[in-house]
Simulated assay, not measured.
Amino acid sequence: MSKFDFGQMPDREGFFGEFGGQIIPPELKKIMDEIDQAYEEIRQKPEFQEELASLLTDFVGRPSPIYYARRLTEKLGGARIFLKREDLNHTGAHKINHCLGEALLAKYMGKTKVIAETGAGQHGVALATACALVGIPCEIHMGQVDIEKEHPNVTKMKILGCKLVPVTRGTATLKDAVDSAFEEYLKDPVSYIYAIGSVVGPHPFPKMVRDFQCVIGQEARQQFQEKEGKLPNYITACVGGGSNAMGLFTAFLNDDDVNIVGVEPAGKGLATTEHSATLTLGKPSEIHGMKCYVLEDENGEPMPVHSIASGLDYPGVGPQHSYLKELGRVNYETASDEECLDAFMTLSQVEGIIPALESSHAVAWAMRKAAELPSDQTILVNLSGRGDKDADYVANKLGL
Rank of each mutant, 00 (worst) to 15 (best):
L76S: 08
V199E: 15
A181F: 10
G121A: 00
G316V: 00
P63C: 05
G247R: 07
A38L: 00
S336N: 13
E13P: 07
G352D: 12
P374N: 14
P10S: 02
Q320R: 10
P10D: 01
H90T: 06
D256M: 01
I115D: 04
A366T: 04
L380Y: 01
P374S: 13
N396D: 13
M290P: 00
E117H: 12
I353H: 05
K84T: 01
R12S: 05
I42R: 04
S384C: 07
Y393I: 03
V165M: 11
C292M: 12
E139A: 01
R71G: 02
P152W: 09
A371S: 04
K325C: 08
T236W: 02
G61S: 09
Q213N: 15
D58L: 15
T250E: 06
Y192C: 05
L380H: 02
A116Y: 00
S359P: 12
D297Q: 10
D337E: 06
G240T: 02
E102T: 04
V165L: 06
A364Y: 01
A38I: 01
D257F: 08
E50T: 08
I260E: 13
A366K: 02
Q8M: 06
T129E: 06
I31L: 04
E47W: 03
H141Q: 01
A93T: 12
T250R: 04
G119N: 07
S310I: 14
G17H: 14
F212L: 08
T168I: 09
A103G: 12
H361N: 15
G21V: 10
Y108L: 07
A103M: 11
R62P: 15
N244M: 07
P304E: 09
K207E: 15
R210S: 13
K369R: 06
A132E: 02
S307L: 12
V305C: 13
S307I: 09
A128D: 02
F59Y: 15
D179F: 04
N153A: 04
H141C: 05
K291E: 04
N89M: 12
G14K: 03
I159S: 08
P63S: 10
M345R: 15
G110N: 04
K30Y: 04
C238L: 02
M9W: 14
E40F: 03
S375G: 11
S243I: 14
C238M: 06
M290K: 09
A93W: 15
G143A: 05
S285A: 13
T272Y: 06
N233V: 03
H98G: 12
L341D: 07
D342V: 05
Q223P: 03
E338G: 01
A126L: 07
N259S: 09
V294G: 01
I23N: 02
K149E: 05
E226Q: 13
G318Q: 14
Q225D: 10
G316Y: 00
L347C: 10
A79N: 03
E183A: 15
I66T: 14
Y68W: 05
Q218F: 10
H151P: 01
P166M: 07
A38E: 00
A126V: 06
N299M: 00
Q22K: 10
Q320W: 13
P26Q: 00
G387K: 14
T278F: 09
D392Q: 12
L347W: 09
F344I: 11
I96F: 05
A356S: 13
V145G: 00
E358G: 01
K397D: 11
I66F: 04
S307F: 10
F82N: 07
V394H: 08
A195C: 11
F59C: 14
K397W: 03
T378A: 11
F48P: 00
